[in-house]
């Protein structure tokens, strides 16, 4: 798998990370070298093997839909970088 400039730009856009021109080559090489190393996995015969996204015997955990106290709004908003009138302040999203 060859990682070119277009691919590293695409991956950065997916990850919402900007990629200045002077960092592109390093980022490209880093991804390239890990993927080259990961090639070793293609040796493994995984035919008929189920993937393990989890080691635990994962089952749905259900609970009753009960009304319980939640965190205090003022406490939670203390963590936000920008707040106005008790709400998160974000840039305009709809014209």
């Amino acid at each position: 798998m060859k990682i070119d400039d277009e691919m590293i730009d695409y991956v950065s856009a997916l990850a919402k990370l900007s990629l200045p021109d002077d960092e592109r080559e390093k980022a490209r090489q880093d991804l390239q070298s890990v993927l080259e190393y990961a090639q070793v996995l293609s040796e493994v015969d995984t035919g008929g093997v189920e993937p393990s996204s989890h080691v635990a015997e994962a089952v749905n955990v259900f609970r009753e839909d009960e009304i319980m106290p939640s965190f205090d709004k003022r406490e939670i908003l203390k963590s936000a970088p920008r707040v106005k009138d008790g709400q998160y302040l974000v840039p305009k999203t709809v014209e």
Binding site: V11, L14, A15, L31, A38, V44, V49, S52
Partner: peptide, 22 residues
């Protein structure tokens, strides 16, 4: 970035799913 690549459409099976099987 590596994770975003491994999960991206077109490479998911070859990398992420393969790793889960391994």
């Amino acid at each position: 970035r590596l994770g975003a690549f491994a999960l991206s459409s077109g490479y998911y099976d070859a990398y992420y799913l393969k790793a889960l099987k391994v």
